[in-house]
Design a protein around this nucleic acid. Structure first.
Lengths: 111, 111
DNA sequence: GTATTATATCAACTATTCTTGATTCGTCAA
DNA sequence: TTGACGAATCAAGAATAGTTGATATAATAC
């Protein structure tokens, strides 16, 4: 069911993977794992320059991986679990089922 | 069980995500989805310069996402489903469980 | 042997991404 | 108001990644 059009949207997939291909951003995601955090909090914990953190938060936000919520002068970021679910689907589609692997076997191209 | 040390290996995670953060490489992965292919075959189908494809195959191979098998003058590439399983685990660990979300709620930092 | 083919590698270049420090904007407190 | 703080944005430079064309290597065919 997921196979026919799976992976068609390569650019969306690359956007997600790219957003996660940076240690600072992954560390942010990890910190948000158990709930939302304000920027100052993340900055403290991760010990990164403010503008740098802001840059990475934007990458995550543009990819839809996090959401932000303004409250007074603070901004709270949280994981977007819909997008994380989307990621799981995409990642799952990359993995061939055992059956498919069995069907094609040694036979390949240029023989 | 996966939680305590989950995500500790940020650099491995970034390597995997980075390897998948390119459309050409994702297209390769997609082509390998139903079995191994020789380079010439991939090159034909994807219509990319040979050295460029070789570069991208190396990125995928360095990340462990594909394996290569030399046969005469051809090299056949195939997905490494162990690594794809690893990817799924990593991606899964990014997504907080519903329970965790519920426990932490509005309360955050700087109040 | 020589020629040809499949692939990898290298060097030079281009493009993209990341970092830094400065500036700006909005919010709150005095 | 004015001043301070939290956060976003911008411009410039540094670093990294990707592309291209040329060359190298290894296997096969002649």
């Amino acid at each position: 069911m997921t196979t026919a059009t799976a992976g068609t949207d390569l650019s969306r997939a690359t956007q997600l993977f790219h957003a996660l291909s940076d240690e600072t951003r992954l560390a942010v995601v990890e910190m948000l794992h158990d709930g939302e955090r304000c920027v100052c909090d993340l900055q403290d914990a991760l010990d990164v320059a403010q503008s740098r953190l802001s840059f990475h938060l934007k990458v995550l936000k543009d990819a839809g991986l996090v959401t932000d919520r303004k409250e007074g002068r603070w901004v709270h970021y949280a994981l977007n679990s819909d997008t994380l679910a989307e990621l799981l689907t995409i990642a799952g589609d990359l993995k061939p089922s055992r059956r498919v692997l069995a069907v094609r076997g040694g036979r390949a191209c240029c023989d």
